[in-house]
């Protein structure tokens, strides 16, 4: 269990949050022109990194807002938290 610093509510117990998977996967701008391979890439393929990963979280039992997190998946250490729409911090 770890504490998460919600950008809107401050530090809260991890139990209040829901993980939303890898961040910065862009929705295709022209869905009708996508090939099957490109759809598979968008829908299913994930980096699943062991190390620094950029991901989305939702404060489900709090403000219910989404935000981004940079986390080291090899030790669960949170490196940075930033709001949706903000530029990800340089590594």
């Amino acid at each position: 269990m770890f504490l998460i610093n919600c950008p809107y509510c401050g530090e809260r117990d991890q139990q209040e949050f829901k993980a939303g998977g890898e961040a910065h996967i862009e929705r295709p701008k022209q869905p009708t022109e996508l090939s099957d391979d490109e759809w598979a890439e968008y829908l299913f393929m994930r980096k699943n990194i062991k190390g620094i990963q950029f991901e989305r979280w939702n404060h489900a039992h709090g403000c219910r807002k989404w935000f981004n997190m940079v986390r080291d998946t090899s030790n669960d250490e949170i490196k940075a938290i930033y709001k949706m729409g903000e530029k990800p911090p340089a590594q």
Partner: peptide, 18 residues
């Protein structure tokens, strides 16, 4: 659980989450 780590070494992406 480390399949994606090995796949990344070969330049492949897998539809997995560990």
């Amino acid at each position: 659980g480390h399949s994606s780590v090995i796949a990344n070494m070969a330049g492949l992406k897998l539809p997995l989450e560990s």
